[in-house]
Simulated assay, not measured.
Amino acid sequence: MEPVIDQAFAAALYTDDDAGLDTGASLLAAAPAADAELVRRGEEFVRRAWERGWLPADVVRFVRRDLDEHAAGLAAGLIAAEVRRYPELPPRWRSQLDELPAAPPPGRPDRFSYASALLGLYRLLLTLPVIEPVGPPPGAAREALYRPPVAGEPRMLTRIRALLAKAEATGFPEEAEALSAKAQELMARHSIDEALLAARTHGDRTPGACRIGVDAPYETAKAILLDAVASANRCRAVWNSDFGFTTVVGFEADLEAVELLHTSLLVQGTAAMTRAEAGQRAGGRKRTKTFRQSFLMAYAQRLGARLADGTARATAEADAEGGAGSGAGAASGLLPVLAARDLAVTDTAEKMFPRTTTTRVRGATDLDGWTHGTRAADRARMGGRTPEIRD
């Protein structure tokens, strides 16, 4: 059956027109014995994506954006089958695999439609360029895949996630503030302890990276929010608008803080925007798009300032504790440790992205949206004197 598949691929995968896709699909539809080999070829295309630096979530996001949800499901099915080859997977892969969309059910509308959808997916996978890797690919040496667990880390992260989930769910701003404040306190202390522990044990000296999806609509405002959260955690963020994700560079504890906090603040901000917009509509105003854009821009800008203030405050408090001999910083000196980590993150980011550009952001045009967004950011601040998320 390989000649049939080769003929179908030659007709469909290396042209941009629908006629070639139809020709390839017709060939495959008439050859049911080729189905197994057709899927195996798809797994090879997925494997090539790993070699080019892509992760499961990246591939599915790209497919969903350029094709549709059905194609994303087909890609998820190929990914799930391909990764069964590996006895161990890199960090973060398991959570990404757990969040993949469901593959389409076995019952297919017809063989032609099925073959056409697969060929369209394969055609797209062939276009995936090489991107900056954010970790070892599956199948790498075990030493590259293995990340020693930090004592107490799973329990800490579970507790933080629970606090942020409650903050997102409550309808009372004061309660959300208290819950988020406690989560920030835990993350800030955990991050500082990790930095000092690494300095004492000469471990974790190399920053890592992760990718976080930045989806439409209003992706510019969302990218700005993510950049603010990353900066507050002593990470660097580089947004790739073409592929719909931001690469965040930093040490592991800080990357986890960025992922958790960004998700929570985005959920809180979206919920606040929806409530504010409902109030605007009740008042007879219908500037939905400009209102939302302005709201999220203000929300991101205001939170960025507050998070930066919180970072400085938390660092000063921790350093003061060390100077008084009452905290973990007394023996090692917190500020030099953090400065060294900042330098390592900057060097790593510049090596990964030697050529970056700045983007001119379109200004907000809706005053009501800006005002409501600023107020929402104030409500989302993480408590009065409690340290905000940071390293």
Rank of each mutant, 00 (worst) to 15 (best):
M1S: 13
E2M: 12
I5Y: 06
D6L: 11
A8I: 05
A10E: 14
D16M: 06
A19L: 12
D22I: 14
A33H: 13
E37M: 13
R41D: 03
R47D: 14
W54S: 07
A57W: 08
R65S: 06
H70C: 05
H70K: 14
I79M: 10
A81L: 08
E82A: 11
R84I: 09
R84A: 08
Y86T: 12
P87G: 08
E88L: 11
P91G: 11
R92K: 08
S95K: 14
P109K: 15
S116W: 14
R123C: 02
L125K: 03
V130Y: 08
P133A: 01
L145A: 01
P149D: 03
R155V: 14
T158Q: 13
T170S: 04
G171A: 03
P173V: 12
E174S: 14
E177Y: 01
E177A: 11
E185S: 13
M187G: 02
M187H: 03
A188W: 04
I192A: 04
T201Y: 11
G208R: 12
C210G: 12
A216N: 14
A216G: 12
Y218W: 11
K222C: 01
A223E: 00
A230T: 04
A230W: 01
R236K: 12
A237K: 07
W239E: 10
D242N: 13
G244W: 02
T247A: 04
G250H: 02
E252D: 09
D254K: 00
E256T: 07
E259C: 04
H262A: 04
L265P: 00
V267Q: 10
A272M: 08
T274W: 07
R281F: 04
R285S: 02
K286C: 09
R287P: 02
Q293N: 15
S294D: 09
G304Y: 04
A308Q: 12
T311F: 07
A318L: 05
A324D: 12
G329V: 03
L335V: 06
R341H: 02
T346G: 06
M352G: 02
R355L: 12
T358S: 15
T365K: 14
D368M: 04
G369E: 05
H372I: 03
H372N: 03
A377G: 13
R381H: 05
E388I: 01
